[in-house]
């Protein structure tokens, strides 16, 4: 009897060993060099169409705790001057005092404070943290999903997430009034981290 349990458990260890050997826990740096990351945004234009743009330069890292995923964390720093909406005059305006005021506030930052896992879907979580934008720090919630993780073909280990949130421009002191259909902007953050 005892022997049979020992054999069975040895067998189960053998079968699950490759998975247990690496559960993905660790600290990851964003793959900025390979550009496997993007922060896109969309905002309504007059209520008639979506205007999409992106922030080209940002960096960050996250830690992932497979045993206790809610103990994971993430920080992101964004260069707001890297805003890119494929229209030079508009980008210049977005960097000005009317919007991001990048001369005065050259860095935007997000630091997670806690993570609330989704009860129904183990791959989804609310990442709650402080976003500093245009000198204003506010708590925001990122609706995040882990897309996958594992070894890459070049000897590294990668993990990727996508997250969404919606910000109200005036909450961050952005004074420009674009009309009632354009009071908020939706952000889509897609990152791939390489384990350090």
């Amino acid at each position: 009897m005892l022997k049979r349990i020992a054999v069975a458990s040895a067998l189960s260890v053998a079968i699950s060993a490759p998975l247990q050997a690496d559960d993905g826990s660790g600290t990851y740096a964003f793959d900025t060099k390979g550009q496997h990351q993007s922060i896109n945004f969309k905002i309504s234009h007059l209520g008639y169409s979506w205007l999409y743009g992106r922030f080209n330069d940002f960096d960050g890292e996250f830690t992932y705790d497979a045993e206790n995923p809610s103990e994971s964390s993430v920080t992101v720093t964004i260069d707001p001057a890297s805003v890119d909406s494929a229209h030079a005059e508009r980008d210049k305006h977005l960097r000005s005092e009317d919007f991001l005021y990048v001369d005065e506030y050259p860095e935007a930052r997000f630091e997670s404070t806690r993570i609330e896992l989704d009860d129904d879907n183990p791959k989804e979580a609310d990442i709650i943290g402080n976003l500093t934008l245009r000198g204003v720090t506010r708590e925001v919630t990122l609706d995040a999903e882990m897309l996958g993780h594992g070894e890459d073909p070049w000897g590294g280990y990668r993990m990727g997430f996508e997250a969404e949130t919606e910000l109200t421009l005036s909450n961050f002191g952005i004074p420009m009034d674009l009309g009632k259909a354009s009071r908020t902007v939706e952000l889509f953050i897609s990152v791939e981290g390489i384990r350090q």
């Binding site: 494929a86 229209h87 030079a88 005059e89 210049k92």
Partner: peptide
């Protein structure tokens, strides 16, 4: 150069 910085 401001207006043509995006190539337009």
């Amino acid at each position: 150069l401001i207006s043509t910085a995006d190539g337009s």
